[in-house]
């Protein structure tokens, strides 16, 4: 059997054509699935934001209600050490939350007061630029989302976030969750996670869990696009600050003192 170059090329070409044609046919032959339809409650044209009233927050000493409830409903594991730690909302001393404020002559007491911090759900989020697989992105309603199905665990978004809002699953988190909430997925080892502004609750028309849990009503949540919303009212009437607004990230979590 003799095969010359021309023959070989022809055969190779035909097989290649067959392969390509076959796969094209495979794709075309599969009919499109029915399109999902939006629910009446799907939130379109909104831009979610939060105001944290620190005066009210400091009303009760040592209160961790918002943290507890958030970590419970979102199956956030507790490792009990800072190395593996995962957190969605937590507190830091005032001077750490706002290092740009000159606090030289302020009372010692204020510097150390706990400020609740969480993902700022930036309107111009730096983290999403870095993700090589689009596993994190900003949704139309302004929520910066994480797709745990797609995250490859490179942790570049953690390097991109100037607020340290993101946590990584260094271990399998399941054994470290006291009681699993079956309405929300857990995560696996090797992916990055963070606060999702309770988008799973927003979609049902509910307020974020932390907002609901706060007895002092220190957390106020609402639509920044709606001039009559509670958040907009506060933003109009009081002086608010954002964390590191000089970085141009446009945080959507505001603080009032």
């Amino acid at each position: 059997m003799e095969i010359d170059r021309r023959g070989l090329l022809k055969a190779a070409g035909l097989s290649l054509l067959g392969l390509v044609g076959g796969s094209v046919w495979y794709v075309i032959s599969r009919a499109k699935l029915p399109e999902p339809s939006p629910t009446p409650k799907t939130l379109v044209g909104k831009k979610w934001g939060m105001v944290i009233d620190l005066k009210k927050c400091w009303g009760t000493d040592g209160c961790t209600d918002c943290i507890d409830v958030c970590h419970r409903v979102h199956n956030v594991p507790r490792f009990g050490n800072p190395k593996d730690e995962i957190k969605w909302i937590w507190t830091v001393p005032y001077e750490k939350a706002f290092p740009e404020h000159q606090l030289e002559f302020i009372e010692e007491d204020v510097r150390a007061r706990p400020v609740p911090v969480l993902c700022n759900q930036c309107d111009n989020p730096p983290c999403i630029k870095y993700c090589p697989t689009k596993a994190t992105w900003r949704r139309e309603d302004g929520v910066v989302m994480m797709d745990y199905h797609r995250c490859i665990g490179c942790r570049y978004c953690m390097a991109g976030c100037p607020y340290g809002s993101r946590s990584f699953n260094w271990k399998n988190p399941r054994p470290f969750i006291k009681k699993i909430n079956f309405d929300f997925p857990t995560r696996t080892k090797g992916v990055v996670e963070k606060c999702n502004f309770c988008q799973e609750r927003l979609i049902q028309g509910l307020l974020p869990a932390c907002v609901e849990a706060c007895k002092e009503r220190a957390l106020i949540f609402g639509d920044l696009n709606d001039p009559d919303s509670d958040v907009r009212r506060i933003l109009r009437s009081r002086h608010t600050i954002q964390r590191h607004s000089e970085l141009g990230t446009k945080p959507k979590v505001f603080y009032v003192l």
């Binding site: 090589p132 697989t133 596993a135």
Partner: peptide, 21 residues
């Protein structure tokens, strides 16, 4: 260094060209 090495080809499957990686 990847947390999910099983997904490394996602970089090719879902590429995001804005990422320096």
């Amino acid at each position: 260094d990847l947390g999910r090495p099983d997904r490394m080809l996602y970089v090719i499957r879902y590429p995001h060209f804005r990422s320096p990686l």
